[in-house]
């Protein structure tokens, strides 16, 4: 595109003049992005790995049942606590049924957050801020 207006060299030799620098900049940016992504991914992965190692060591990893119990109880606990808070809110302020509805949904969100933290899908907030996993 720019090669026509830029310099009058032969078409395929002069072309890399300016576009080359653009390409270089682009590839450099892509490289940096790639690096950042991979480092982020590494952080997450290592975090998930350490969690895995801490919570279920070699003998324990066999027990998928325990892991299933753990994950499901996190979700259920979040929803149950949310519903309980909502019910209490309604009971005290007689705003039925709005408190129950709002806190039930919040509780569901909290349960999913718990679940994803336990599963190591999302890192804990402090890890994202500080960078490397804290417990090394």
């Amino acid at each position: 595109m720019a090669n026509g207006t830029h310099d009058g060299g032969s078409d395929h030799d002069g072309a890399p003049g300016k576009p080359l620098s653009d390409d270089a900049a682009l590839s450099a940016r892509l490289g940096r992005l790639d690096q950042r992504l991979s480092s982020l991914k590494d952080t997450r992965k290592s975090k998930a790995d350490t969690d895995e190692r801490q919570e279920q060591d070699a003998s324990a990893r066999a027990s998928a049942l325990a892991r299933g119990f753990r994950l499901s109880s996190e979700l259920v606990a979040g929803v149950a606590v949310g519903a309980a808070i909502g019910w209490g809110f309604d009971y005290l302020l007689s705003t039925s049924p709005w408190g129950l509805i709002v806190f039930f949904l919040l509780g569901f969100a909290a349960g999913v957050v718990n679940l994803m933290r336990v599963a190591g899908v999302v890192p804990d907030v402090q890890d994202r801020v500080k960078g490397p996993p804290r417990d090394q």
Partner: peptide
């Protein structure tokens, strides 16, 4: 949590509090 936009901060704080309160429940029920 740090780095959360002001707009959704109340929502996130509410979720974090419920998440914190649900700990003894899941801890004991498990």
């Amino acid at each position: 949590p740090h780095g959360i936009p002001m707009v959704i901060l109340p929502l996130v704080v509410a979720i974090e509090i419920i998440s914190f309160l649900s700990r003894p429940v899941s801890h004991s029920v498990r």
